[in-house]
């Protein structure tokens, strides 16, 4: 029963690739934004905060449609990118990564922000008196101490990215081998008369990936926390 077909493999590998790329690209941005929101007051901060959380409350299909309007071939940004840099997101796996990155962004940013807010600013001051310029304070004190939060954010973001469906299928459709992730493959399979077995296999695999991610997150978080608390 558990013979994974080449099409299913393709969807599994594509899902992993999309989620990994989305998480890796979103993480530095998420860290920067979390730091900005945690440590600075600036004009329009609540607006930025709201924008970050928007994908969490908008229907995914709306986010996908907005992406199609902006980053699509005829979109404002999309046409410029295609004409000037030759970058196309629409109906490509990279577009799926963009959609997944945006959808998972709120989940990625939140734990990082919380862990930065929990860091005693007195430690950052101590670093400053020892001659560390602001960027070094960030790299040598803030970031290492926020590491458990960063890892938690990455795992949550990855889990969300690998399961993303609505925005992805709206923005890049459901093309086997290019944009068909596990979720969209399952969706296609349960609409075909004899697709139940294949859908079942993919369901089991997504459960396994999700569990694996959670276990890994727990392990990383425990190690990082022990490290941060000086034990």
């Amino acid at each position: 029963m558990f013979e994974i077909s080449p099409t299913e493999w393709t969807a599994i590998l594509l899902s992993l690739r999309v989620a990994v790329v989305a998480t890796l690209v979103a993480t530095p941005l998420g860290i920067g934004l979390a730091w900005l929101l945690a440590r600075h007051d600036f004009w329009g901060k609540s607006l930025v905060d709201a924008l970050v959380h928007l994908p969490l409350v908008l229907p995914p299909v709306v986010t996908g449609y907005l992406l199609l309007l902006t980053l699509g071939r005829r979109g404002l940004v999309g046409s410029w990118l295609a004409d000037h840099l030759g970058i196309v997101f629409a109906f490509r796996w990279t577009g799926a990564a963009v959609a997944c990155g945006i959808m998972s962004f709120p989940l990625l940013v939140r734990p990082i922000r919380l862990s930065i807010e929990a860091i005693d600013r007195k430690l950052e001051q101590a670093a400053e008196t020892l001659g560390a310029p602001p960027w070094q304070v960030f790299l040598t004190v803030t970031l290492p101490l926020a590491l458990p939060g960063v890892l938690a954010g990455m795992v949550l973001g990855f889990a969300k990215a690998i399961g993303e469906f609505g925005a992805t299928i709206t923005f890049v459709s459901n093309i086997p081998g290019e944009t068909q992730t596990i979720s969209s493959a399952i969706y296609a399979l349960i609409q075909t008369p004899d697709g139940d077995a294949a859908a079942g296999r993919l369901v089991i695999i997504s459960i396994a990936i999700a569990l694996g991610a959670l276990v890994a997150a727990e392990w990383f978080a425990r190690r990082a926390t022990a490290r941060v608390h000086g034990n």
Binding site: D120, Q125, A126, L145, R227, G230
Partner: peptide, 9 residues
């Protein structure tokens, strides 16, 4: 500082 503030990591 009074509270040492060593870097715990």
């Amino acid at each position: 500082f009074q509270d040492a503030r060593l870097f715990p990591h």
